[in-house]
Design a protein around this nucleic acid. Structure first.
Length: 505
DNA sequence: ATAGGGTTAG
């Protein structure tokens, strides 16, 4: 009991001391205690030791033992070991359980390998196991994160067909999937369906919707939903607050954001690393670097330790203020001392160099990444492509497509949009449209910026009707045009001296 | 003891 209590209270060290004593006295701990310990050490190097210890001690494992072990392997990114383990346990007393498979699928999804996860879904069926709501939700989530919304929806239908009712988690996952693509009208349809099915929204649902409003720049609607939430007896979570905070920060209303921070603290909610990172970024964005550093220190005093998010906030703050040499100094100390070589920090720096047209420095940092054996991300390449485009080196920019493939990466909407913009700038409408078709063929959803580039390209060739049609397409999709979209169209009509059509919307 | 909501670079 003592060992169990220690373990449950995450006092793992004490638990281990008690267990060692027990071993001296030849007392056997219960499997409950062992599992709890295995669970608490699942992210550490002790995972194997504890597991081997259980195996050799003769304590009969429970059905949970194996799935906890698999979870540990997945969390340590040892997916291959997890797969081998599942294969070994097949046919044994506690062979692969649904939970084991679900854990494994979740592990693969988190690493971005949805296809592999799907193959385990099939394997599960072959083992005679019936996927449960977790199995479906894990896959649907993985697909949504990967942007394959259509397939996620197909899986949802499949789920219903097999008698597993989509629950609040399923609907939340789908709503977020639409939100991620900026398609809020789709998200609302998901919620409608959910209500129709008699499934009640929860705090997560509200948070996704508030986030959607905020993302569309409509903080007011976000706050209205918050009122509705409160009137229905829900309490705001740290995350709901963070969404609202973030929205204020994005629109530069930093004092409003700080007010929310004090409000949440007043309710006894403790801001976490993400909340602080949002605020630090917000302060940097409006140029208040000193206040940002002050908050950063306050966070450290509360024993919340900065990660690359908070560092990235300060770094991009310095960059945005045009303090490029200070930014570089900060960057150098971070990359020299930090054990984790985060690609995001490199990306921020590379992007800044690209933005100011210093492609030389950008390429230099890229080479440094490769030398250090750090894997570049698609963002790294997008920034480099931007840099080349800005310097009118379109061939070099396009040439990077092969390098992207070489690294096993996939061009994103941003890759396409950046290149399309470059073609648009040099007046190559055909080149731009060809890229757009290629993008569509890969089922990549165009963003507001993609549409704006398309509109700009068409406007340049006086194809006004088509550009207005694109604007209509955006409305139909629930994709919000921004100021630049409107400015582009207005400017174009002005140039065509067609002042009346401006009221077309 | 397996699933869902918030921050980053384009």
């Amino acid at each position: 009991m003592l060992a169990f209590a220690y373990s449950r209270s995450e006092m793992v060290h004490d638990a281990l001391v008690v267990l060692a004593k027990m071993k001296d006295l030849s007392f056997q701990p219960s499997i409950l205690t062992c599992n709890s310990l295995l669970y608490n050490l699942r992210c550490t190097d002790h995972l194997w030791n504890v597991y081997d210890e259980i195996k050799s001690s003769g304590i009969p494992p429970s059905e949970f033992t194996n799935s906890i072990f698999i979870d540990g392997l997945c969390r340590q990114s040892r997916l291959q070991d997890a797969v081998s383990f599942i294969q070994e346990t097949e046919g044994k007393e506690f062979g692969p359980s649904i939970v084991s498979f679900n854990t494994l699928m979740s592990g693969f999804c988190k690493m971005g390998f949805v296809d592999v996860a799907k193959s385990f879904f099939c394997m599960m069926l072959k083992c005679g196991l019936r996927p449960d709501a977790y199995s479906y939700n894990i896959l649907i989530h993985g697909l949504c994160i990967a942007g394959s919304l259509e397939e996620a929806l197909e899986f949802t239908i499949d789920m219903e067909r097999h008698g597993v009712e989509p629950d609040v988690v399923t609907y939340n996952i789908l709503a977020k999937g639409f939100r991620l693509l900026g398609l809020m009208s789709g998200a609302w349809k998901v919620i409608e369906k959910m209500l129709l099915k008699g499934v009640n929204p929860d705090v997560v649902t509200y948070t996704i919707l508030i986030c959607g409003h905020c993302q569309m720049g409509n903080i007011e609607e976000g706050f209205k939903l918050r009122e509705e939430m409160l009137s229905r007896g829900f309490e705001l979570s740290i995350i709901s607050y963070s969404v609202l905070l973030s929205s204020f920060c994005k629109s530069g209303q930093i004092d409003e954001a700080m007010k929310l921070l004090y409000e949440m603290e007043g309710f006894g909610l403790k801001p976490d690393l993400i909340t602080y990172s949002i605020l630090i970024r917000g302060l940097c964005k409006v140029g208040e670097i000193q206040r940002a550093i002050q908050l950063y220190k306050e966070m450290c005093l509360k024993r919340i330790f900065p990660n690359s998010f908070s560092h990235g906030a300060i770094l991009s703050g310095l960059c945005q203020k045009g303090m490029i040499s200070q930014a570089r100094m900060y960057f150098d100390t971070l990359t020299k001392s930090d054990l984790t070589e985060d690609i995001v920090l490199y990306n921020i720096m590379i992007d800044r160099y690209a933005k100011i047209g210093n492609i030389g420095k950008a390429v230099q940092l890229y080479k440094q990444i490769i030398e250090k054996g750090i894997t570049p991300s698609i963002v790294t390449f997008n920034s480099l492509i931007y840099g080349f485009c800005k310097n009118r080196k379109l061939d070099e920019a396009r040439g990077l497509s092969d390098t992207i493939k070489m690294h096993g990466l996939v061009p994103s909407v941003v890759t396409y949009t950046t290149l399309m913009n470059a073609y648009c700038e040099v007046g190559n409408l055909q080149g731009m449209l060809k890229l757009y078709q290629e993008m569509e063929a890969k089922a990549l959803e165009p963003t507001c910026i993609t549409y704006t580039v398309l509109i700009k390209g068409l406007c340049k060739k006086q194809r006004l009707q088509e550009s207005v049609q694109l604007l209509e397409d955006m409305y139909a999709k629930g994709l919000a045009p921004d100021q630049i979209t409107y400015n582009t169209i207005i400017q174009c009509f002005c140039q065509a001296q067609n002042m009346r059509s401006i009221s077309i919307t």
